[in-house]
Design a protein around this nucleic acid. Structure first.
Lengths: 202, 202, 202, 202
DNA sequence: AATGAATGAGTCTTCATTCAT
DNA sequence: GATGAATGAAGACTCATTCAT
């Protein structure tokens, strides 16, 4: 990841940002390396001083973005006790971090699903990490009898992630994008009630 | 779309199936027309008697699959009264129809998101149709005071679809795929309780 | 070697000939595939229906030429008894076959020595085959006491081949090329006397 | 050729040696300037303070090697009277100088024949000088009736040089290289008898 | 003089599409 | 309609060379 001959992290970053911009417009396969170079203000060949291949650019862009997101979420979560609050923070963070960089959001919503093989060898692990985080929160809530146990943590995590993901997708595709953040509460509210131990049963 | 739909619908179908098979293995951009031709047992050129372009093959495959799915769901729904049952049927149908053709499921989970532009000009409408169907059901349930109204029908539809979608994605990526259908009830259960008017409040 | 999709041996031959022409003018590395295609009167892509790579074109051209030469020589030699006559026929054939196709001769004199690695993995075997043929003739002549035994058959074969090879090289480089064939007798005469058992010693 | 010959002859020499090493391993065209720089322990750009181009490095390496060889041979020859001894010295020197630097030998055996054009404009003159030296010796021997006159001095020179050249080539390609020097006597012996006036005729 | 990051021209190869048979 | 050989446009990537430091 930094075994490259080049040392200029600024230029590296510019290329990455240009790539995300270009990928977000055309998709990975319809994007040209020369277009990325032009937007980054460097020569075509310079790209290859910083990245081994066009493929590698995409991977690093996604990797970096996900890792940054994931570390932040984990940090915030550990500060909280209530699993309901933890889920709310995850949702909030998920939407906020994508809302702050629309191009990146577009790339993540599309290229992360590029092809079954690409996903399996690359992005799947990220999603699994994410899902595991949610599952752990769910299991703790179940242990504390805050969440009901009829819903498997795996299914819930899928649904929770899928719900957020689809909210983002529809935001990404919308021409007049409404603000994304308010949706965080709505989604959390919906999913938490779905998961909640029914008080009336008590 | 069927201007040059050649006379032999059987061969056309074979090409479509071969395409889905190939696309599911490599993704659209890493698939070769000649490979599709070989699997369909026709010459390369023959493909172009039935489809205008490689792109067109994907579109028609996805279009056909979605339309079939959508017509069936609509038909089943109109037989039912209870919006909760209607949502359950939608979930069931969603999972069942993809479970019955894993290759198609793979293509839908990946290629439908090929690029923001592709989605906007093509697959977005399908998803919007689907979402509108769900929203209508939700609104009827809200009108009947079965569903609470704090949750916007748009948000719920996104979450419901997203949840199912993610369930399918994780099934598609799993090496030892568990049975998909039981998840339909779990998801519906989760989402319905999330949406339900809280009895205990009454 | 003929596992290619293409069937037209005529076109294949035309490409091969165009390649030899182009290689003879610029050397392998300074030749362009598109130039070969243009001279053969085909599209660039067509080249790749007949050959896997630019590299492969060179190999097949050299392989084909050498094998044809070698089979002919072997056939002629078996008709003769006297090892002196056999060496004369080899020399004659060597020069005649290269004289008949100057471009091919140029390519063989230059590209066969392209780089140590290329030679080792490819052309070396041809030369070894050739040398072994000469060595066998020499050994038979020695067994019959026609040739003296102080000269090792290996050394003689090297010298014999080297002498002919250099005659060809100088012919290839000459602007006003004299006729090559008369040299065959001169070389044979020289080398045979060098190898001959000295009568006066007897 | 030494307009920009930089001040540091040591560094220049190191680059030349590194180049010969690299060229001998990969051939000229498959060698990278940056690899030469790395082996010489200088920066890529430094190469261009000492040489105009990659091409120029090869030319100077070959030029230098040949000139050194040629001056030495001429010096040794003038000390001798007998043309037979002179030829023996040439052969000895030819093999010895290449035996002493195997990498250089490899480069000379391969790159000197890089392409017909390269040879014509560059290495041909060296070979012609060499051949002329041999021819002069032969003509003197013929004038003294030591060598027979039926063999043209041109043909003999070609054969003599070709024989030595091929001996070197086969040594260069051999994995377990036998000692090269003993071959000098064998070759000289063979070629001298080939050229000798037959005593028995006298 | 030395560096090494940056340049960008240059080329092999792929593959969707066409069209003569 | 069907074929599949032929087309040729297009693009990722390399690497000799330059030049600001």
């Amino acid at each position: 990841m930094d075994a490259n001959a080049a040392r200029n992290p600024d230029k590296r970053q510019r290329i990455l940002e240009a790539a995300i911009e270009v990928f977000s417009e055309n998709g990975f396969f319809n994007s040209r390396v020369s277009e990325i170079a032009a937007r980054a203000g460097v020569a075509d060949g310079t790209i290859y001083l910083y990245f081994k291949s066009k493929d590698q650019i995409l991977r690093e862009a996604l990797d970096g973005a996900f890792n940054r997101f994931f570390e932040e979420v984990k940090a915030e979560i550990t500060r909280l006790e209530d699993p309901r609050e933890q889920l709310r923070v995850i949702a909030m963070h998920h939407l906020r971090s994508l809302a702050s960089n629309r191009n990146l959001a577009i790339v993540m919503q599309t290229e992360l699903r590029q092809s079954a093989n690409f996903i399996k060898e690359f992005s799947h692990q990220h999603i699994v990490d994410y899902l595991n985080l949610v599952r752990e929160v769910v299991r703790q809530g179940q242990a504390k009898s805050i969440f009901r146990t009829e819903i498997s943590d795996r299914i819930f995590a899928n649904c929770f992630f899928g719900a957020l993901d689809e909210i983002v997708t529809s935001w990404v595709l919308s021409d007049r994008p409404h603000d994304l953040l308010p949706a965080a509460d709505a989604v959390t509210d919906l999913m938490l009630q779905g998961l909640a131990e029914r008080k009336s049963h008590g």
